[in-house]
Design a protein around this nucleic acid. Structure first.
Lengths: 155, 155
DNA sequence: GTTGGTGCAAAGGATTTGCAAGGTG
DNA sequence: CACCTTGCAAATCCTTTGCACCAAC
């Protein structure tokens, strides 16, 4: 599990089915109804969603879809570039690759999850690059801590 | 699973058994040989170690120790403040709380894991604080990306 | 018709829980 | 001796794999 590096400017078009199909076809792969259902579920989700949750939801809409199919599909769609995953406190979660353009600032006390702007993310990346030549992908792991409110509250 | 926030200057003494016992006793808890073995294993580890690995190693030295004891102990020692965990690409890993003073820069291609200095970490935290009032704990999640070498190599 | 995909079933591994027996302070 | 801890065993959960059948293109 390892995503692409750095945050790119948002210039690509958002993925839709045509897009997904194209990426699959380019590799001689097929767009099955199961895959369609899985992509739909991830697209419908604002933000990120856990694999096991995708499995449950997809099975809700389309009984008979096997969990193993879901896991295999997620892996495949990530290889193809349609999906990406990030690590949150609760585990790995998937999202459309082109929705990866934000960094999670998750409060460990109240659970609030603020996004970091592109500009701020770039500033952080620049700072890391300057000292290590390391190209950070801040979207891949969340950043935890205490939000302003909770920090003020003391905890 | 959620650790304390911010990176503190390293001024506290390193934990040793006396330290651990004190923290337990303060809560009316006991220092059993199993707990001693588990703490020993974590202290012996330079850096971080996964729960399942701790279980295996402890069982190696001290057959009969049950895995459930290990998991319960890790949770407890984290509540007490002796241990903390971080999230790396491979999952959660534990370490002595006072060894948490570094941020992981993990290369997703070659796997190299560089630490970020305290000063640099503070700079990043300052930047985040300025814009969001958010007190980031950069030690809790690793930062992935591409190390200088791999970034240059193109991948 | 090819070749990739899916369902099914089973395996695997990590982690949790209830409970009675055991050990620490 | 009281109460915390442990071992045991069972139960979950999530995820992976082998394989024969099925379907997309």
């Amino acid at each position: 599990m390892q995503g692409p590096a750095t945050i790119r400017a948002v210039e690509r078009t958002r993925h839709d089915y045509a897009d997904v199909m194209e990426q699959l076809r380019a590799r001689g792969l097929r767009m099955t109804p199961q895959r369609r259902a899985i992509v739909t579920e991830v697209m419908r989700t604002q933000g990120h969603i856990a694999p096991s949750m995708i499995a449950r939801k997809v099975q809700g809409d389309m009984p008979g879809v096997n969990a193993s199919t879901v896991y295999r599909t997620l892996t495949l769609l990530e290889e193809v570039g349609v999906l990406s995953h990030s690590h949150l406190e609760t585990g790995a979660e998937y999202h459309m690759t082109d929705e990866a353009e934000h960094v999670h600032l998750t409060c460990g006390r109240c659970g609030k999850d603020d996004p970091l702007s592109l500009g701020e993310a770039h500033a952080l990346q620049g700072l890391i690059r300057r000292h290590h030549g390391f190209e950070a992908d801040l979207t891949h792991f969340a950043i935890t801590g205490r939000c302003a409110g909770c920090a003020a509250a003391g905890a």
